[in-house]
């Protein structure tokens, strides 16, 4: 095997794309399935540990794994030559394969934008990394929480499209 073997690089980007995606969606599911339902049950004196210690660390892995997932995914699509067709959902190509991956890419991209442009900017204010009047924090936490729920919803068809691509 040559080091520059294009097939190997293709596999390598797919591997890194999937690893990053597990890190990203793993954190998303941790927030939605574990942390959010459990916080109200934590004794009040222990609760500050979540925003002070766990959230900043978890949000770092969450947003940067979202970034590396989309970067490796786009590189993969470029390398395989279907990026342009996938963006237009394969319309006119008569390829269910391209339409499927196109839907997956759009869902993933919406989720990535949600992380970087809605969840993270609002969480920075909620956690006090960016100063805002304290009375605004509940509203900003609500916006971030809803965006996180939207991503949980979208992750279900997104993973269907990504993992099911070989059925089409």
């Amino acid at each position: 095997m040559e080091l520059v073997d294009i097939t190997w690089w293709n596999f390598c980007f797919r591997w890194l794309h999937i690893l990053s995606g597990i890190m990203w969606i793993g954190h998303l599911y941790y927030f939605n399935f574990t942390q959010t339902p459990t916080v109200p049950k934590i004794p009040a004196e222990l609760r500050p540990a979540i925003p002070r210690f766990i959230m900043p660390e978890a949000l770092w892995w969450f947003r940067w794994s979202a970034m590396s997932t989309i970067v490796f995914g786009l590189l993969l699509a470029l390398m395989n030559g279907y990026l342009g067709q996938a963006i237009i959902l394969g319309i006119g190509s008569h390829s269910a394969h391209i339409t499927d991956i196109g839907f997956g890419m759009w869902l993933g991209t919406i989720m990535w934008a949600n992380v970087w442009f809605i969840i993270w900017p609002n969480q920075q204010k909620v956690l006090g990394m960016v100063e805002v009047p304290a009375d605004q924090r509940p509203r900003l936490a609500r916006i971030a929480g809803l965006a996180s729920r939207v991503n949980t919803l979208l992750s279900i068809p997104m993973v269907y499209c990504m993992a099911g691509v070989h059925f089409y």
Binding site: N32, F33, T36, P37, L89, G90, I91, S93, H94, S95, A96, I98, T99, D100, F103, L146, R149, V150, T152, L153, L154, S155, I156, P157, Y160, C161, Y168
Partner: peptide
């Protein structure tokens, strides 16, 4: 009316419904 996204169960159920819609769209487009 309560927001369905406030319920984790309803969020997941909507995710499955959206999956079915997208599968139908894939077949309709391709």
């Amino acid at each position: 009316m309560k927001n369905p996204l406030d319920s984790l169960g309803q969020t997941v159920a909507l995710g499955f419904v959206l999956t079915i819609v997208i599968v139908l769209l894939i077949h309709a487009i391709a």
